[in-house]
């Protein structure tokens, strides 16, 4: 059995999770400091991918980075191509999963007790120290939850992915596109195998989350 879809799915989900993690955190941090009106507007723009159908996102992506579009042509000059490549899958997953990370992280940041940051500053701690050593640990639960949601969403991405990178065995195939493809050509047992693999990954991810949470709780009690 060709394991490429599994590897591809994992690398797409992992890479896009890392990107979404940083993008989401910084967007959340800066948006949580905006005034109410600006926050409302930026929030709508950043959350839009969550409510739009993935195929619509896929359409937007194609008309943005397509080979004959200005941005696509510009990127092509540097040999970067998103259409029909596996890192196109990363781009699609990033756009789709971003709102999940952004929204959960923003909720966590907004519950942060700002006097902790103030006292850190008056103690002479640098802003980046305060961010990584005080704010992030304080908001750890929310950020972790956002990361897990983003990873799960990236792993299961189908609509935008299939529009942007299609299904090419051994090149762009992911688990979800493979399941669809196998079912369409009537290979039900092949589809079932991939469904089971996907179930296993999801179970492992959830188990890891639960263990992490328990460890955190124990640390607090100690």
């Amino acid at each position: 059995m060709d394991m490429f879809p599994l590897l591809n799915s994992l690398r797409v989900a992992a890479l896009s999770s890392v990107i979404v993690f940083f993008l989401g955190i910084f967007a959340a941090f800066y948006v949580s400091k905006l005034n109410r009106i600006a926050k409302g507007i930026v929030d709508v723009l950043l959350t839009l991918p969550l409510v739009l159908p993935p195929t619509v996102i896929g359409y937007f992506l194609i008309i943005t980075v397509g080979a004959r579009r200005p941005i696509g042509m510009f990127l092509g000059e540097f040999g970067i191509r998103f259409v029909m490549t596996w890192y196109g899958g990363v781009l699609a997953a990033v756009v789709i999963a971003f709102p999940l990370m952004y929204r959960t992280a923003r909720g966590a940041f907004e519950s942060f007790d700002e006097t902790l940051a103030y006292s850190g500053k008056t103690l002479g701690l640098s802003n980046s120290y305060i961010f990584w050593k005080i704010r992030m640990p304080y908001c750890r639960q929310g950020i972790l939850a956002g990361l897990v949601l983003a990873f799960a969403r990236a792993l299961g991405e189908f609509g935008a992915t299939v529009m942007l990178i299609g299904y090419t065995p051994g090149r762009t195939a992911t688990i979800s596109t493979t399941v669809y493809h196998l079912w369409r050509i009537g290979d039900d047992s092949g589809a079932l195998r991939w469904v089971m693999i996907n179930l296993c990954i999801s179970a492992v991810v959830l188990l890891a989350v639960n263990m992490l949470e328990r460890k955190n709780k124990r640390a607090v009690i100690r």
Partner: peptide, 10 residues
């Protein structure tokens, strides 16, 4: 605030 050398007990 980091350069002011002012202690602040919240």
């Amino acid at each position: 605030p980091q350069k002011r050398k002012v202690g602040y007990l919240f």
